[in-house]
Design a protein around this nucleic acid. Structure first.
Lengths: 124, 124
DNA sequence: ATACAATGTTAGGTTACACTAACTAATATT
DNA sequence: AATATTAGTTAGTGTAACCTAACATTGTAT
């Protein structure tokens, strides 16, 4: 299983968060959340559906599969951990910490992630 | 000034390090260092030359311009700082720290970089 | 029930970046 | 000097993302 592209990771994370917030997720919501146009989402969603990361049918709602949710949570965990580190420990302001975390989360391995979590736990 | 693509950042960093190591840099060296094929380097190098980041002529040597060197150093600084943090502070092993740093360096803003440096200075 | 607004899709185009295969130039060996 | 090896280039492909413009569907309001 080749790992996910950055773009798929972003889509998964966005869908995951939208599911939490509002239950039902539409193409439009994802587009807004990621700052891309509708056709980009349509295409991504078709591919992710083929990859069994989400369930989706034309004009319908978007739902993570069990599989997809696992990945989404992983990505989000990386995001949260990085954000907290940047913001709460380094003191980087929220919006920059958010942006940097988004960019950096993709490269963060699970090994490093865990070390970072341990490190942060020790400090409080 | 749109900022550099990740790919350009990688090329700059590689060329910078190769210049240090061996003085003269060739297409082949860059290819080996980045793990890409020669034609990819030829193309990248042509574009970077057009963008005044390097000096290059067909079949010749590759040299960073003053401009290019500034960028290269910046990228490398991010890399080094991240690597040191991951390896020396978090205790991530070298090869993983190296790989993660490579991936994450691109997303690291200067603001966050500086906070990270301050943080690391305080700790010793 | 029709018609409109909002949402979604399709088709086709663009850019970035890598690749292979085939060719050319430069360098080294005999 | 002739040829073989190494290095570099060119041309053509492929894939991942994105986009715009045009069309289709759905749901809502009159």
């Amino acid at each position: 299983m080749g790992s996910l592209t950055k773009s798929f990771e972003d889509y998964l994370e966005a869908i995951y968060l939208l599911e939490q917030e509002k239950g039902a997720v539409r193409v439009k919501d994802v587009a807004k959340s990621l700052g891309v146009k509708l056709p980009s989402v349509t295409e991504a969603v078709r591919k992710m559906s083929k990859a069994r990361l989400i369930e989706f049918e034309r004009y319908g709602l978007i739902k993570l599969t069990g599989h997809g949710k696992i990945f989404a949570k992983e990505v989000y965990k990386k995001h949260k951990t990085l954000f907290n580190f940047l913001h709460k420990i380094l003191g980087v302001n929220k919006s920059i910490a958010l942006k940097d975390a988004c960019e950096m989360e993709h490269g963060l391995s699970n090994i490093t992630l865990n070390k970072l979590r341990q490190f942060m736990n020790k400090r409080r």
